[in-house]
């Protein structure tokens, strides 16, 4: 591990609550160890602000190991910052230079209202899943796990899609705030697996309808979502969703 440290200027979006408008505030941090994670750097800032009697920056975070999907912010215009396939909590300060200015903004979309500072409301994503992102099976009475063989390659493809952590970076990076990658990943996972077949058409229709209702924008195939996705989810899943949707709409 290196023992380097850097000085930074942070420009952070500060917004008291969803009713008020926000502004950017500038903070300077000295001697930030490059071994710190981005969130630990924010911890250091917050400890400093607290000691000065100022309001610390509110930001969402939980597991801090890149899997829960709670954290996320736009760093210098890129959701989750400059490292590919990395959540904000797994981004380390060694990827920045001494003297850098970092502009830190919340994930933005009409469907993601800001609650405070960098904290947003992503319940719209939950409602998309509620519309049909499941197999309608009650607890109990299910067949043996090996009753239906699933080719290894299919299981792997489904797993590729299922790896989505629901962080919302795809929406944040999309020029139109579309949730196609998120929705496409879930529809893909379930339409690939035999367990998802009975409700395949209804699911595609219901989830796409829910997505539009929540105020997400439309896909213009800009591919920005795929580029920032911390789990490397491919836009192939969007194509698969489109296929499912077209099939469901025209072939009913």
């Amino acid at each position: 591990m290196t023992k380097n440290s850097i000085d930074l200027t942070l420009k952070i979006w500060r917004q008291e609550n969803s009713r008020k408008t926000g502004v950017f505030e500038t903070y300077r941090l000295k001697d930030i160890s490059t071994d710190m994670s981005f969130l630990e750097m924010l911890d250091v800032l917050n400890e400093k602000l607290t000691r000065e009697g100022r309001d610390p920056v509110a930001f969402d975070h939980d597991c801090r190991e890149g899997i829960c999907g709670t954290c996320g912010a736009v760093i210098n215009g890129v959701a989750h910052g400059p490292e590919p396939e990395t959540t904000l909590c797994q981004l380390h300060m060694r990827h920045f230079e001494n003297g850098d200015t970092l502009v830190i903004e919340p994930f933005r979309s009409r469907a993601f209202p800001v609650k405070k500072d960098l904290i947003i409301d992503r319940s719209s994503l939950d409602r998309i899943i509620q519309a049909g992102g499941y197999v309608s099976v009650n607890t109990g009475g299910t067949p043996d796990g090996n009753a239906t063989p699933i080719p290894s390659a299919t299981a792997e493809l489904a797993m590729d899609a299922a790896a989505c952590i629901g962080c919302g970076a795809c929406v944040a990076s999309c020029p139109n705030g579309a949730a196609m990658l998120f929705t496409g990943a879930k529809i893909s996972q379930l339409s690939l697996l035999p367990q998802g077949q009975p409700e395949r058409k209804e699911r595609a229709m219901a989830m796409v309808t829910a997505m539009d209702k929540e105020g997400f924008g439309n896909c213009i195939n800009a591919k920005e979502c795929e580029a920032v996705c911390p789990k490397g989810i491919s836009i192939r899943n969007i194509a698969r969703m489109n296929r499912e949707f077209v099939k469901a709409s025209f072939l009913g």
Binding site: Y134, V135, V137, T139, G140, T142, P143, D144, G145, N146, T148, P149, I150, P151, S152, A155, E156, A158, M159, A162, Q189, L190, L193, Q195, G196
Partner: peptide
């Protein structure tokens, strides 16, 4: 029962080449 339940929900467990 847990394994059966999770498979039925569409949990993409790792599979052998034969599909088990």
């Amino acid at each position: 029962n847990i394994i059966d339940q999770c498979v039925a929900q569409g949990v993409p467990f790792a599979r052998e080449y034969g599909g088990t």
